[in-house]
């Protein structure tokens, strides 16, 4: 509703407004002028994690990954639920036989049931992956947060130590150490992987902590007289968690691949442990005549890693502050 009620608004001597530039005042009350800054009171409060969860669960990829992960964890925990055949009871007379009732994938060279071995192989991968990831997250977060938060010589020393471990490629170091170990178990394999796998997470944590500690809420906590350790635990670490969680999901997949690689080379888990890596290695000999022996454990392995990696993608999208800034 334009109104032009000013003869010459600029005062004497100024030119008259030109067409399209007349004085215009919009009709009053065009929506919520009074509430310049009101708090919404309907909707439930959304914390950071709740918000992330809402975002994740709306994506199909999240559910695909979740189903795969649940399945793999179930396989690892209760393999007996899925098969009644013992993976270690083998009958040489069944060597390389095709699928039969009760043995849907057939038999390998040793006459072991491939389906059962594929089911039971999940445990080795999941246990080593979870153990190694847990160790890496605990140790890497500790090193990274101390270096990043306390700075000064802590940072200098710890960063240099991180660099040293970072300079030795993971698989190479694992091969060297494991080859001289005589009794290898899931725990020792995980420990060795963790020993050379932590620098990455330490670097990520250090970087995040260094940026989080410059936030004003940290300064505010300092002015309250809060101790440094308490600030680190209560304010800095929770705010640094997102990238650590994202990396942990990816690392889990990488450790599973590394374990399989080592078992494939014969220096991972001992031969009597049923593992996908070991079975792929065993199937390698018959690759041209019976490639399916190799493909079942390889498929299991790939699906598992894919599940964790996809989850990592979804989690990153949900937690990444850059992606969240609409």
């Amino acid at each position: 509703m334009p109104e032009n009620r000013y003869e010459n608004p600029g005062g004497p001597g100024t030119p008259m407004p030109r067409p399209g530039q007349e004085r215009y005042v919009a009709a009053v009350d065009e929506g919520g002028l009074g509430a310049v800054d009101a708090v919404k009171t309907d909707e439930a409060p959304t914390s950071f994690w709740r918000d992330a969860w809402h975002q994740m669960r709306s994506r199909p990829l999240f559910w695909v990954a979740a189903v795969i992960m649940t399945l793999v964890v179930l396989l690892a925990a209760f393999p007996g639920l899925f098969t009644s055949v013992d993976p270690r009871t083998c009958n040489l007379s069944m060597s390389l036989q095709g699928p039969q009732p009760g043995h849907p994938f057939g038999f390998d060279r040793q006459g072991c049931d491939i389906y059962s071995r594929t089911i039971y192989g999940a445990r080795a991968s999941v246990v080593v992956g979870l153990l190694a990831t847990t160790m890496v997250v605990v140790f890497g977060t500790l090193m990274g947060s101390v270096a990043g938060y306390y700075g000064k010589w802590f940072d200098t020393v710890l960063s240099r130590v991180t660099d040293i471990f970072f300079a030795i490629p993971l698989v190479l170091a694992a091969i060297v150490i494991l080859s001289i170990m005589t009794n290898r178990t899931s725990f020792t394999v995980a420990l060795v992987l963790a020993l050379f796998g932590w620098p990455q997470i330490a670097r990520i944590t250090r970087g995040t902590v260094m940026s989080v500690k410059n936030n004003e809420f940290v300064t505010a906590a300092k002015s309250l007289g809060m101790g440094r350790g308490r600030i680190l635990v209560r304010h800095v670490l929770p705010n640094s968690a997102a990238p650590i969680i994202v990396y942990a999901t990816v690392a889990l997949g990488q450790f599973i691949v590394a374990e399989a690689t080592l078992s494939f080379l014969g220096i991972g888990l001992p031969p009597w442990t049923v593992s996908w890596g070991g079975d792929i290695s065993a199937g390698q000999e018959a690759i041209r005549t019976a490639p399916e022996i190799l493909l079942y454990p390889a498929g299991g392995l790939a699906l598992t890693v894919l599940g964790f990696m996809m989850m990592g993608d979804v989690v990153r999208d949900a937690l990444d502050p850059k992606a969240r800034k609409r």
């Binding site: 792929i280 392995l301 890693v305 990696m309």
Partner: peptide, 18 residues
């Protein structure tokens, strides 16, 4: 790309060989 990351190198190697 996720598939390439998820499938271990030695499996990719065998599949390509075949």
């Amino acid at each position: 790309s996720l598939l390439f990351i998820a499938v271990p190198t030695f499996v990719v190697g065998f599949v390509m060989q075949i």
